[in-house]
């Protein structure tokens, strides 16, 4: 019996909790991608760098507060300045919209032109990020690190396996829950939210019904940027901030959005968890887990790892390919055209 509890604790500590945390980051990112796709009708390649840009702004502000000696122990200082980070990032993104995307909307360009324009914006954002904060790894997490550590857990319950919960993990889950709940409430219960969904369903009909397209566009960008910035800050607090890693996050985020069905918010959020859990579950070594469960003398001699951790990113791609082959519209049917 103790063995089973130990095995479950082990799996919770190394698969379930990290999976939930990472899943919430990917889910938030994928929500942004899917909103832009559903409403503005293109795959935004600059989303990963929008995440990085918003996070960078938050980091700079955090450093400012730290220099002033302001902190909200045990929570990280970054939480205080996220709203300002979101505002700055939104202003920049809206600037890009005004100078770049608006032009292509006006000439009714095919969606692939928007995608190429987003590549241009990706270049600009990466250039700005590297110019301002540099390409190096930055750590900006402060405050308490753990709610409780693995050792405290072990001593308290008398188990041989420990479970630790980091502040960043709990915060990721909490913030994501609040954010996603309010987003869905907004989309389904307010007039403005309904106008966004109406615009996404049928642009012409929505405009005929008196929905102001400019307002819809601005709102979409602000929501997507806010989600991206918050996801980026949470990810940075949980791991660390490195511009190139944020760019690479684009792949799992897109995988999540496609798995859930591009253009479908609920699908994107669920897709984030599907991708995160697959990544972690496939690259986790089950040796110790099995050692607890199997009878003595049958313990595995190898690591029992399906894929090395270095292939983490490959997993999201594999899921993507499987979904594309079996059900191209995603788990929750997304937009088809």
């Amino acid at each position: 019996m103790v063995d089973i509890i130990n095995a479950v604790t082990l799996l919770t500590n190394y698969v379930l909790l990290p999976g939930m945390t990472y899943g919430s980051h990917l889910g938030l990112g994928a929500l942004g991608i899917t909103l832009v796709y559903g409403i503005l009708r293109f795959s935004n390649f600059a989303h990963g760098d929008t995440m990085a840009f918003g996070t960078m702004m938050t980091i700079l502000l955090t450093w400012g507060l730290q220099a002033l000696g302001i902190s909200i122990y045990p929570l990280p200082t970054a939480i205080l300045v996220i709203p300002i980070g979101v505002v700055i990032a939104s202003v920049v993104v809206l600037g890009f919209d005004k100078f770049v995307y608006a032009h292509f909307r006006q000439i009714n360009a095919p969606s692939v032109m928007f995608v190429i324009a987003s590549v241009g914006i990706m270049f600009v954002l990466q250039g700005l990020i590297r110019l301002i904060i540099g390409p190096e790894n930055q750590s900006f997490a402060d405050g308490a690190r753990f709610i409780f550590t693995a050792r405290e857990f072990k001593e308290y319950f008398g188990l041989s396996e420990g479970l630790s919960i980091k502040v960043s993990q709990l915060m990721s889950l909490g913030v994501t829950t609040i954010l996603v709940a309010s987003l869905f409430w907004f989309l389904y219960n307010t007039t403005t939210g309904k106008s966004l969904r109406a615009y996404s369903d049928n642009r012409d009909l929505a405009q005929l019904s008196g929905i102001n397209p400019d307002r819809v566009v601005i709102l979409t960008w602000v929501i997507a940027t806010a989600l991206a910035t918050i996801a980026g800050v949470l990810y940075g607090l949980d791991k660390s901030f490195k511009p190139s890693v944020y760019f690479q996050l684009l792949l799992p985020i897109f995988a999540a959005a496609i798995v859930g069905g591009l253009g479908n918010p609920l699908g994107a959020f669920v897709g984030g968890f599907v991708v995160a859990f697959s990544e972690i579950a496939i690259t986790y070594a089950y040796k110790r887990f099995l050692a607890y469960l199997l009878p003595e003398g049958m313990e595995p001699t190898t690591l029992v790892q399906l894929l090395g951790t270095e292939y983490k990113f490959a997993v999201s791609f594999l899921i993507l390919v499987i979904v594309l082959l079996i059900k191209p519209s995603g788990i929750f049917a997304g937009k088809t055209a």
Binding site: I116, V119, G120, F123, Q126, G127
Partner: peptide, 19 residues
Amino acid sequence: NAAHMRLLTMGVILLIVLK
């Protein structure tokens, strides 16, 4: 960080040409 100017330059060139 001036070496990273090239990314910015590329982005600006691409956007100007596109528009």
